[in-house]
Design a protein around this nucleic acid. Structure first.
Lengths: 119, 119, 119, 119
DNA sequence: GTGGTCTAGACCACA
DNA sequence: GTGGTCTAGACCACA
């Protein structure tokens, strides 16, 4: 966790969870670390972890079972990728386009830079 | 101004100012609209405009003259453009490309979205 | 047992027991399944079953005999039915009707939903 | 607020807001009481109000404007009614049906009681 | 003033 | 042990 970052800690925890899921440390259908375990491990308050978990739950990535903790959804990996695509097209890209227009950067500049990276 | 956007209003005002400068509505060395004029024109609170102007002043883009208001710096256009282009190509774009690769987003998706925004 | 439901597992177990009693699978005066048998059968933790049985005991529905397990009370069926019907018609139904009127929900919506559940 | 109730306070606050909206105390498009105002008025912690407001925001009933507070959505009344219908058919009704089946209550009993209430 | 985030500490129902 | 709720108190960016 980067406490100096502008990015709220609860979103950093979500990012961390995404890494665990895509990196296959958290397996579909299995239990994920409890709120308390995570709060100790990451040295943050339980509320902050709880807030991240709430968000992940609302995204359908983890599923709560009363008194038993949270379990990773079977389709968690798919959901994450979809969620990240949504974020990219809804937030990141419009900002980039806005900057490009402001600076008069042509889409062809972008395309050629992309192709450089590909080769 | 987009009150629903995540982008703070004072930064949207700065964006707007950048547009005025790059679009040559605000001429180097000439007076720019007063804080009050802007607040009326954009329908925002005066001290939100004041905050944007403070930032622009600290960036050397506009210069205050006692009792006369703010004037556009002679080198405002160049300064803005150079700095922003540098940042865009050094930081923003690589991050965007990285995300695109991670999510398997094709450059053609980007191009078609750009063209939509143009039409 | 529905682990996704808002209804606590131990109350779902009680519901299940009520079904067994009203459905005549559990006979008055006879032994009911042990906590362990139930926990295996329903795939839940033994102390979750124990909690449900405690509640049933406090309601006078089942009776513990040292070293022998729990036995169904002679008047279990009557007691359950009377109490629950009374509560349903006195409290639950009026609340439901009140909500329906407030939201303009027609009785026919309810009937068709009921028939769906039947088929 | 009923601190003894099983219903969480933040949901009671949401109920209260629903009353204000349906009762036309809160007008569409206008500012609603700030989190702090509500917390004083209802004698609860700001967090608890904030949690209720978060929920209302996620339901599209109120809209946040940075630094200015929350404003009532134009279509708030419609949204609330829809939300309450959803809750009724998703939660309340299934529970009622479950009870009815358990107790062997016929749908015709319900219909006749409804008609009594109507006449 | 306004909401957003975070901490520390507590109590609760549930499993 | 596990999450859910609530309090008290703090600091922050934003308007």
């Amino acid at each position: 966790m980067d406490f100096k970052s502008d990015r709220p800690i609860y979103l950093q925890i979500r990012d961390y969870a995404f890494g665990c899921i895509l990196g296959d440390c958290w397996k579909p259908g299995e239990k994920v670390p409890s709120v308390r375990e995570m709060s100790v491990q990451l040295a943050v308050n339980t509320h902050t972890v709880a807030k991240a978990y709430e968000l992940l739950e609302s995204e359908g990535v983890i599923i709560p079972r009363r008194g038993m903790g949270f379990f990773l959804a079977e389709d968690a990996r798919t959901r994450i990728k979809e969620e990240q695509r949504r974020e990219f097209f809804a937030n990141t890209l419009p900002e980039v386009f806005s900057t490009m227009k402001q600076l008069g950067i042509d889409i062809n500049d972008i395309i050629s830079r992309w192709n450089e990276g590909e080769s």
